[in-house]
């Protein structure tokens, strides 16, 4: 059975000479909820962009359920849904059109698109707004629409790039519920986040990426153990070289 995502020796060098990914290898089995954690500029988004075709890898291999993401991009991309970090909705389109066109780009027939978009608009409480243009939506609604759009073509692998960045607590919890359910229904999920609590709540396994390299991989407790600390947060602080910010150390200093 092929991995949901298999990456080996992935290098991405930009024309400026910056090497954003330095030979990354990663395997995400089917059905897993996987977290990719790292500081800004670590290479998280570049990895996602290479996987979804928004960036061209310099070298290395990416396979999505066994389909090469570069040579057989059609088959590979059909299996992936991407909810990007920045809301990239087309301001000219209504919510219904946003979903309908997306489904069309993935080859879904009209009847299927109509049924699926209705189902998703209902599920994400956006039905009342379906005829409105996307620019009229609040930030939270845009987040929900982006997730709905990513799910429109029923992807097997859902990639969530910082899905809760800058959203309020209730929407964050609501989104957590959505994605947990989707994962329980069988969809493999790759999540990048800055919120370690989010990763601990949702992800089975996770990887730390820093400077374009995967530096550690495992469950939360395994990562903590690997860094010789007691929590995922402390492991992360070790990773970014800021262990002086550890809550335990701060509590100790205050005491």
């Amino acid at each position: 059975m092929p991995e949901a995502l298999h990456i080996s020796g992935l290098v991405k060098r930009y024309p400026t000479g910056v090497e954003a990914l330095k030979g990354v290898s990663l395997d995400i089995p089917q059905g897993e909820f996987f977290g990719l954690l790292g500081p800004n500029g670590a290479g998280k988004s570049t990895l996602i962009h290479c996987t979804t075709g928004l960036a061209s890898p310099t070298s290395g291999q990416i396979e999505i359920f066994g389909h090469n993401a570069v040579n057989h991009y059609g088959e590979a991309r059909a299996l992936v849904g991407l909810a990007p970090q920045e809301p990239n909705l087309d301001h000219f389109l209504t919510l219904e059109e946003t979903l309908d066109f997306h489904g069309g780009y993935f080859g879904m027939p009209k009847k299927d698109r109509r049924e699926r978009s209705k189902e998703l608009l209902d599920a994400f409480s956006l039905t009342d707004k379906r005829q409105e243009r996307t620019r009229t939506l609040s930030g939270g609604m845009k987040r929900r629409l982006i997730l709905a759009r990513a799910l429109m073509h029923r992807p097997e692998l859902l990639i969530l790039d910082e899905p809760t960045a800058g959203v309020d607590v209730e929407l964050r919890l609501e989104l957590w519920q959505y994605v947990k359910r989707i994962n329980e229904e069988g969809t493999t999920i790759l999540l990048t986040t800055h919120y370690l609590e989010e990763a601990e709540q949702l992800c089975g396994r996770m990887a730390f990426i820093n400077g374009g390299e995967i530096v550690a991989e495992g469950t939360g407790p395994a990562l903590a153990k690997q860094f010789g600390v007691s929590s995922l947060e402390d492991a992360y602080l070790e990773l970014v070289g800021r262990k002086e910010l550890s809550r335990a150390k701060i509590d100790e200093a205050i005491a």
Binding site: P2, H67, A78, R154, P155
Partner: peptide
Amino acid sequence: MSVETAPREQPPAAPPPVP
């Protein structure tokens, strides 16, 4: 909320079938 995802009985390696 419940969002239907790809039917599990289909082989995941194959792209979603399109009627």
